[in-house]
Design a protein around this nucleic acid. Structure first.
Lengths: 170, 170
DNA sequence: AATTATAATAAGCTATCCTTACATTCAAGC
DNA sequence: GCTTGAATGTAAGGATAGCTTATTATAATT
């Protein structure tokens, strides 16, 4: 340890552009790094809790809990994943008996996703594991900082989601 | 469109707990969401730039640029990935002629990673693409907010990295 | 000399996405 | 009615990015 110089600067000896600072370890790298470690931490928490859920499945479960009765397309849109990605998660969760797909009476093509009563303990476990991971990750953060981080990330996510959506609207 | 209410809040019509707020869309979910969208955005940027690099490869390249002459294990540790994960990235980057692995004269088991001159334009491309993605992602952010986000993420990452490391130290 | 530890790697697995193609079903025009 | 077109979910298949376990070559230790 102690090998990281306190003042980081990508591309060390040459030009430092005039403008508003090029942000040294590019923000995206830090973000992707943090997310990978976070996901690994969560996966381990779920594994240890014996929930039999992966991060993606847990995320799906939480979304269905918050938005019950949505169609799959709508749910996928909320989660910012492709419908086909969601199918896999739902398949496994349905096989585990944690949710059901009911045909929408108003459109027999569509299916409505609902949690079963059996899901309740899993939801609790997911939230508990998420909370434990969050506590570790935000060790040393004040309440304010934690809230700030979440707000900034939400804004960032919405920026990217908007652009993402407008792209395949063609 | 227009189904996402501007004020986000998990669990809408019911209880708003008394305490320090349980952080509504669990922070980790927001983080993982944001990172996934970010990575997709970056992948697309690299693809469009004709660099022939994936996000992981680009990240490796940037790390080698910033920490030249490191051994693979040290580099992997800096990147917070397993040595074996790094090998794949290095294989492809070396095959592309962007870097070389030289045997460390002080330990013939070890290899030292260095960029080739051919890497220079790729590095520039990587940084440019990263900057473009960052500009989109942080649209509407002030300079201060951007710096704040990076700092918070760095702290979060270090929290998780420390815990991660202490885990397999056994 | 023998043992143990370390650096890189080979092999193989998993999760999480994606894209493309297709069946069903609905909605609208004729 | 029928036909056309769009939308819903899904099957199939692929790519990336990680991981774990085991192997080989070299170093360090005893």
């Amino acid at each position: 340890m102690s090998d990281v110089p306190p003042k980081t600067a990508f591309s060390p000896p040459d030009d430092s552009p005039p403008g508003p600072a090029p942000s040294e370890p590019p923000l995206g790298f830090v973000l992707v790094d943090a997310a990978r470690l976070y996901r690994a931490r969560i996966d381990r928490a779920f594994e240890g809790a014996g929930l039999g859920l992966t991060a993606g499945e847990a995320r799906t479960l939480a979304y269905v809990d918050y938005h019950p009765g949505l169609r799959q397309t709508a749910l996928a849109e909320k989660m910012n994943v492709e419908p086909m990605t969601l199918v896999g998660f739902l398949d496994r969760l349905e096989a585990a008996g944690l949710l059901v797909r009911e045909t929408d009476p108003r459109d027999r093509r569509a299916k409505i996703v609902k949690l079963t009563p059996e899901a309740t303990p899993s939801i609790a476990g997911v939230l508990a594991a998420a909370a434990a991971a969050r506590r570790e990750a935000t060790c040393g953060f004040s309440e304010t900082e934690q809230a700030l981080l979440r707000d900034l990330l939400l804004r960032l996510r919405d920026n990217l989601a908007r652009e993402h959506r407008s792209r395949d609207e063609k």
